[in-house]
Amino acid sequence: MQKIVRIVTVIAACLAVGYLSSIVTRENIPTWYAIIKKPSFNPPDWIFAPVWTLLYIMMGYAAGRIWNRVDEDRDKVKSAFIYFLVQLLLNALWSFLFFGLQNPMLAFFEILLLWAMIYETYCQFRKIDTVAAYLLLPYLAWVSFATLLTGSIWYLNP
Protein backbone atom coordinates (compact mmCIF):
# COMPACT_ATOMS: atom_id res chain seq x y z
CA MET A 1 0.00 0.00 0.00
CA GLN A 2 2.83 2.40 0.87
CA LYS A 3 4.28 1.98 -2.62
CA ILE A 4 1.00 3.05 -4.25
CA VAL A 5 0.67 6.03 -1.89
CA ARG A 6 4.17 7.19 -2.83
CA ILE A 7 3.43 6.96 -6.54
CA VAL A 8 0.07 8.73 -6.21
CA THR A 9 1.66 11.44 -4.05
CA VAL A 10 4.33 12.24 -6.62
CA ILE A 11 1.88 12.15 -9.52
CA ALA A 12 -0.41 14.53 -7.62
CA ALA A 13 2.52 16.85 -6.88
CA CYS A 14 3.54 16.90 -10.56
CA LEU A 15 -0.02 17.60 -11.66
CA ALA A 16 -0.29 20.37 -9.05
CA VAL A 17 2.88 22.01 -10.35
CA GLY A 18 1.51 21.73 -13.88
CA TYR A 19 -1.80 23.22 -12.85
CA LEU A 20 -0.21 26.14 -11.00
CA SER A 21 2.08 26.99 -13.90
CA SER A 22 -0.83 26.68 -16.31
CA ILE A 23 -2.64 29.56 -14.59
CA VAL A 24 -0.20 32.14 -15.98
CA THR A 25 -0.14 30.29 -19.30
CA ARG A 26 -3.92 30.26 -19.79
CA GLU A 27 -4.18 33.98 -19.06
CA ASN A 28 -1.74 34.85 -21.82
CA ILE A 29 -2.73 32.46 -24.61
CA PRO A 30 -5.69 34.49 -25.92
CA THR A 31 -3.80 37.78 -25.55
CA TRP A 32 -0.02 37.96 -25.87
CA TYR A 33 0.60 34.48 -27.27
CA ALA A 34 -2.13 34.87 -29.89
CA ILE A 35 -0.45 37.89 -31.45
CA ILE A 36 3.24 36.97 -31.40
CA LYS A 37 4.90 35.38 -34.43
CA LYS A 38 5.27 31.62 -34.23
CA PRO A 39 7.13 29.16 -36.48
CA SER A 40 5.27 27.04 -39.01
CA PHE A 41 5.79 23.92 -36.87
CA ASN A 42 4.02 25.44 -33.86
CA PRO A 43 1.39 22.91 -32.72
CA PRO A 44 -2.22 23.96 -32.18
CA ASP A 45 -2.91 25.37 -28.72
CA TRP A 46 -5.26 22.52 -27.72
CA ILE A 47 -2.46 19.92 -27.89
CA PHE A 48 -0.44 21.30 -24.98
CA ALA A 49 -2.79 20.49 -22.09
CA PRO A 50 -3.25 16.78 -22.84
CA VAL A 51 0.43 16.29 -23.68
CA TRP A 52 1.58 17.98 -20.50
CA THR A 53 -0.97 16.11 -18.40
CA LEU A 54 0.32 12.79 -19.72
CA LEU A 55 3.93 13.85 -19.23
CA TYR A 56 3.29 14.94 -15.62
CA ILE A 57 1.65 11.59 -14.90
CA MET A 58 4.55 9.70 -16.46
CA MET A 59 7.21 11.70 -14.63
CA GLY A 60 5.30 11.35 -11.37
CA TYR A 61 4.99 7.60 -11.83
CA ALA A 62 8.72 7.42 -12.65
CA ALA A 63 9.66 9.39 -9.54
CA GLY A 64 7.29 7.28 -7.44
CA ARG A 65 9.08 4.15 -8.65
CA ILE A 66 12.37 5.73 -7.59
CA TRP A 67 11.00 6.68 -4.18
CA ASN A 68 9.88 3.09 -3.71
CA ARG A 69 13.53 2.01 -3.98
CA VAL A 70 14.58 4.17 -1.02
CA ASP A 71 15.16 1.16 1.28
CA GLU A 72 17.57 -0.38 -1.23
CA ASP A 73 19.86 2.63 -1.73
CA ARG A 74 18.90 5.73 0.20
CA ASP A 75 21.79 7.88 -1.09
CA LYS A 76 21.12 7.21 -4.78
CA VAL A 77 17.40 7.77 -4.33
CA LYS A 78 17.98 11.01 -2.43
CA SER A 79 20.35 12.29 -5.12
CA ALA A 80 17.96 11.32 -7.91
CA PHE A 81 15.04 12.97 -6.13
CA ILE A 82 16.96 16.23 -5.72
CA TYR A 83 17.53 16.36 -9.49
CA PHE A 84 13.90 15.48 -10.05
CA LEU A 85 12.67 18.29 -7.78
CA VAL A 86 15.02 20.83 -9.35
CA GLN A 87 13.85 19.98 -12.87
CA LEU A 88 10.22 20.14 -11.71
CA LEU A 89 10.77 23.64 -10.32
CA LEU A 90 12.54 24.68 -13.53
CA ASN A 91 9.60 23.26 -15.48
CA ALA A 92 7.22 25.55 -13.61
CA LEU A 93 9.59 28.51 -13.87
CA TRP A 94 9.59 28.32 -17.67
CA SER A 95 5.87 29.16 -17.81
CA PHE A 96 6.37 32.21 -15.63
CA LEU A 97 9.30 33.43 -17.72
CA PHE A 98 7.71 32.77 -21.11
CA PHE A 99 4.07 33.59 -20.46
CA GLY A 100 4.14 35.61 -17.23
CA LEU A 101 7.06 37.87 -18.11
CA GLN A 102 6.46 37.41 -21.85
CA ASN A 103 10.19 36.95 -22.26
CA PRO A 104 11.08 34.25 -24.83
CA MET A 105 14.80 35.02 -24.57
CA LEU A 106 14.95 34.41 -20.83
CA ALA A 107 12.69 31.38 -21.22
CA PHE A 108 15.01 29.99 -23.90
CA PHE A 109 18.08 30.12 -21.67
CA GLU A 110 16.10 28.68 -18.78
CA ILE A 111 14.77 25.78 -20.89
CA LEU A 112 18.34 24.85 -21.80
CA LEU A 113 19.02 24.44 -18.09
CA LEU A 114 15.73 22.54 -17.71
CA TRP A 115 16.73 20.16 -20.51
CA ALA A 116 20.08 19.49 -18.84
CA MET A 117 18.39 18.81 -15.51
CA ILE A 118 15.88 16.43 -17.09
CA TYR A 119 18.74 14.58 -18.77
CA GLU A 120 20.64 14.36 -15.48
CA THR A 121 17.47 13.16 -13.74
CA TYR A 122 17.18 10.49 -16.44
CA CYS A 123 20.79 9.44 -15.79
CA GLN A 124 20.22 9.33 -12.02
CA PHE A 125 16.99 7.34 -12.43
CA ARG A 126 18.71 4.89 -14.80
CA LYS A 127 21.14 3.94 -12.01
CA ILE A 128 18.18 2.90 -9.85
CA ASP A 129 15.33 1.77 -12.14
CA THR A 130 15.57 1.59 -15.94
CA VAL A 131 11.78 1.64 -16.36
CA ALA A 132 11.60 4.89 -14.40
CA ALA A 133 14.36 6.33 -16.56
CA TYR A 134 12.62 5.31 -19.80
CA LEU A 135 9.42 6.96 -18.57
CA LEU A 136 11.29 10.28 -18.70
CA LEU A 137 12.28 9.95 -22.36
CA PRO A 138 8.99 11.29 -23.81
CA TYR A 139 9.33 14.26 -21.46
CA LEU A 140 12.90 14.83 -22.62
CA ALA A 141 11.77 14.61 -26.24
CA TRP A 142 8.91 17.08 -25.68
CA VAL A 143 11.19 19.55 -23.90
CA SER A 144 13.66 19.19 -26.77
CA PHE A 145 10.86 20.23 -29.12
CA ALA A 146 9.80 23.00 -26.70
CA THR A 147 13.39 24.26 -26.69
CA LEU A 148 13.37 24.54 -30.47
CA LEU A 149 9.96 26.20 -30.34
CA THR A 150 11.01 28.67 -27.63
CA GLY A 151 14.18 29.58 -29.49
CA SER A 152 12.23 30.05 -32.72
CA ILE A 153 9.70 32.30 -31.04
CA TRP A 154 12.50 34.35 -29.52
CA TYR A 155 14.12 34.65 -32.97
CA LEU A 156 10.83 35.67 -34.64
CA ASN A 157 9.96 38.20 -31.94
CA PRO A 158 13.18 40.09 -31.11
Rank of each mutant, 00 (worst) to 15 (best):
residue 34 A to H: 06
residue 136 L to V: 01
residue 149 L to H: 03
residue 145 F to R: 02
residue 43 P to M: 08
residue 99 F to R: 06
residue 45 D to C: 11
residue 155 Y to F: 12
residue 47 I to M: 15
residue 54 L to S: 13
residue 137 L to D: 12
residue 123 C to P: 09
residue 101 L to I: 04
residue 99 F to D: 04
residue 77 V to R: 00
residue 149 L to F: 01
residue 32 W to F: 02
residue 119 Y to E: 08
residue 135 L to I: 01
residue 126 R to K: 15
residue 49 A to L: 15
residue 6 R to V: 07
residue 123 C to F: 11
residue 18 G to V: 10
residue 41 F to W: 13
residue 104 P to E: 07
residue 93 L to A: 10
residue 101 L to Y: 07
residue 83 Y to H: 09
residue 65 R to H: 02
residue 22 S to F: 06
residue 27 E to H: 05
residue 16 A to N: 14
residue 61 Y to F: 14
residue 46 W to G: 15
residue 6 R to G: 10
residue 67 W to P: 03
residue 52 W to N: 11
residue 123 C to Y: 10
residue 157 N to Y: 00
residue 74 R to G: 04
residue 95 S to W: 09
residue 92 A to I: 04
residue 150 T to L: 03
residue 46 W to Q: 14
residue 145 F to S: 04
residue 67 W to T: 02
residue 20 L to V: 13
residue 150 T to H: 00
residue 138 P to L: 11
residue 122 Y to G: 01
residue 46 W to E: 15
residue 113 L to P: 07
residue 56 Y to A: 10
residue 5 V to T: 14
residue 96 F to Y: 14
residue 56 Y to P: 12
residue 46 W to R: 15
residue 89 L to R: 06
residue 10 V to L: 15
residue 120 E to F: 14
residue 149 L to C: 02
residue 141 A to S: 02
residue 119 Y to M: 08
residue 91 N to F: 03
residue 74 R to V: 10
residue 91 N to T: 01
residue 120 E to L: 15
residue 17 V to W: 05
residue 85 L to Q: 07
residue 96 F to L: 06
residue 19 Y to H: 14
residue 125 F to K: 03
residue 120 E to K: 15
residue 109 F to P: 06
residue 62 A to E: 07
residue 27 E to F: 07
residue 88 L to V: 10
residue 64 G to V: 05
residue 35 I to P: 09
residue 29 I to H: 06
residue 95 S to R: 10
residue 64 G to T: 05
residue 155 Y to P: 05
residue 102 Q to P: 03
residue 28 N to H: 08
residue 65 R to Q: 04
residue 78 K to D: 11
residue 7 I to M: 15
residue 115 W to F: 09
residue 153 I to N: 10
residue 125 F to T: 02
residue 19 Y to M: 13
residue 118 I to C: 04
